[in-house]
Design a protein around this nucleic acid. Structure first.
Lengths: 178, 178
DNA sequence: GACCATTGTTACGGAGCCGAAGTAACGTCC
DNA sequence: GGACGTTACTTCGGCTCCGTAACAATGGTC
């Protein structure tokens, strides 16, 4: 996509400062900047996804399944962790199953819950897609390592304050990964 | 929506550092952090939009029309500036027109182009929606003024390096606003 | 006047979200 | 051990936006 004729974030900010207040203006600028940055990167991500016959949502599920040592995960875990509505999880798993990348399995003790299990083919697809994402998008983001860290840190604070994840439990869970 | 059980960004980063390289890991973390921050704020934005019978895309168009002194703008300008595909612009204007918030008008000199003109009702709706967005989302973002500025600055650099907007022309255009 | 670019529209399928309803299984509390 | 509320997943219909492609009409250029 071609560049916009000007920086919409900065332009909007001027308008907001004129018509509203500085608190609203900076908040608006934060949201708009995040939205536009997302769109920018997402365009590239989608391109890679299409070349692997995936969508980002399907890829995300696959990627988590591929990293999990047990290679299986409950559908509700997917919904909670990736913040995907249950009805959409059903769609996604349907499609992944249909493509032979995942299969549904019964939970050993809880008859209500369904497990998603990655297949060998799914594992291969996940690995290839991630490899492409890395070289074609992630490694090309135009920021220094220091800037990336700052950005990640600021957004972590934004998310924590908005209760996007459980700050208390997070440390334990993550330490368990290592 | 309820918080995720842990910080997915940080968890993914550990996995990436184990399986790939630090460049890919920080890039992935940047994208994921932006995505999740967007989702977090967007949930609130959508809530406000729904209460005004708008979508964010329709609101954005309306808000720009409301601030423009001439109150009219070509459809192609909308497409380029807000990065909305032409076919979607047609949909959006159709709906705004149907709701009586905007009307189409012929361009005075170029018979190919169509102008979108905001109505009095559209102006009122835009103002109310913005007011709610400000108090219910933008003014509540959990970052200090300094942090917001840092964040906006980092994202501006990310966008500029990704050619999201025309850096050269942007200064002129924005100075013209003031 | 021929040629190409730009503008907007139409049509089609795909993806994900929303809301609401429904089924089935689990857990708890009296 | 039965009633009740909760949790897990599915189904359905509708909506919005995207991607692609084709098309008509106009404008600009050589």
């Amino acid at each position: 996509m071609k560049p916009a004729p000007f920086d919409v974030v900065e332009a909007s900010r001027r308008v907001w400062l004129r018509d509203w207040n500085s608190e609203a203006a900076s908040g608006m600028a934060v949201f708009t900047a995040i939205l536009r940055s997302f769109q920018l990167l997402n365009d590239d991500v989608q391109r890679v996804m299409r070349s692997h016959d995936l969508t980002f949502a399907r890829y995300e599920v696959l990627a988590w399944l591929a990293t999990d040592p047990d290679s299986s995960v409950t559908l509700s875990w997917i919904s909670k962790t990736l913040r995907i509505p249950p009805a959409t999880v059903t769609d996604i798993i349907d499609r992944l199953e249909q493509d032979g990348l995942v299969r549904r399995a019964a939970h050993p003790t809880d008859a209500r819950t369904t497990l998603a299990v990655i297949t060998a083919r799914g594992r291969k697809v996940a690995r290839n897609a991630t490899s492409d994402l890395n070289t074609e998008v992630y490694e090309r983001i135009g920021l220094s390592e220091t800037q990336r860290d700052q950005l990640i840190e600021l957004l972590a604070e934004l998310r924590a304050s908005g209760n996007e994840f459980d700050v208390e439990r997070s440390r334990q869970v993550i330490d368990d990964l290592g």
